[in-house]
């Protein structure tokens, strides 16, 4: 069997010999991905420890983690993380709402698509960072301009994902809905929504990735707190360990939030019959 379910079930089966290796591989496989970064980190640690490099510009992991621990102890870390998370969260929420609504309208209603889509595509062609000076002029240097910038970054992939997904919903499946006389709303709820869900989840994840990208840009431009501020502060005061600490935390938060979307969506996507499900079991 191809799906994940049998793997889970096997642990309750009496066949110990079959259960043992599958349980092993279940935990061992994600660990495999950690192997390379761990080796590199330990290697660099060793190089600095042996004195082959002073590690001033590229501090070893121990120093990076010491910086993180210190920031955490002083309460600074939580404050910066909270500021950044708040910005990404709000920007992501606004971007997703706008992208989903406009994408759905454009996908569902061809007149709206003809009216709206060329403009959106033209705006999309503008590198989003080009908006920064304008946003600062319009909205000030504080939170609003940052959140709007993040929302703009999130908007485009979500808009495109939703519209594209609606446009390629299988006509044959829609016809099944028609033969059972689904009303417009029921058609959306029972056919279109589940059909676009896989692509929607992907677009949310892409959007979130861009949200993390743009929060750095926004915070580099002018902020007194946030992980992006930590980066800039580290550069200006010549503290590479602090920069790396912020980068590590960005990586962890980015991966964590992405994983949250994946996990939240997984129960709704168990039906998928796709390449991704078939490999690696």
């Amino acid at each position: 069997m191809i799906s994940d379910a049998p793997v889970l079930q096997q642990s309750s089966e009496p066949a110990e010999s079959a259960a043992a290796p599958s349980r092993l591989s279940r935990y061992a496989r994600p660990m495999l991905g950690l192997l390379l970064p761990l080796i590199l980190a330990l290697g660099w640690e060793l190089v600095v420890w042996l004195g082959w490099s002073n590690g001033r510009l590229v501090p070893p992991p121990s120093r990076v983690f010491a910086t993180i621990a210190e920031l955490a102890r002083s309460g600074e870390l939580i404050r910066h993380i909270a500021a950044t998370l708040w910005r990404v969260g709000l920007g992501f929420a606004f971007g997703v709402i706008a992208g989903t609504l406009l994408g759905a309208v454009s996908g569902y209603w061809s007149l709206a698509r003809r009216l709206l889509d060329p403009t959106v595509q033209a705006l999309r062609a503008i590198p989003s960072l080009a908006w920064v000076p304008l946003f600062i002029l319009w909205l000030g240097i504080f939170e609003t301009s940052k959140i709007v910038l993040i929302a703009v970054g999130v908007f485009f992939p979500v808009y495109l994902g939703v519209m594209g997904a609606i446009l390629i919903v299988d006509r044959k499946i829609v016809e099944v809905g028609r033969t059972f006389r689904l009303s417009g709303f029921a058609m959306i709820r029972r056919i279109l929504l589940p059909a676009v869900l896989p692509a929607y989840v992907v677009s949310l994840r892409v959007g979130l990735g861009l949200g993390w990208m743009f929060v750095v840009a926004a915070e580099l431009i002018g902020a007194s707190e946030g992980l992006g501020y930590l980066l800039l502060d580290g550069q200006q005061l010549g503290k590479p360990a602090q920069i790396l600490a912020a980068i590590v935390i960005f990586a962890i938060l980015g991966k964590l939030t992405d994983w949250l979307i994946e996990v939240a969506a997984a129960p709704f996507l168990r039906w998928q019959d796709a390449f991704g499900r078939t490999k690696g079991t």
Partner: peptide
């Protein structure tokens, strides 16, 4: 009612 050449089952149900 109608039955098509393909089953046209809804894959998410």
């Amino acid at each position: 009612g109608i039955i098509f050449q393909e089953p046209r089952l809804l894959p998410w149900l």
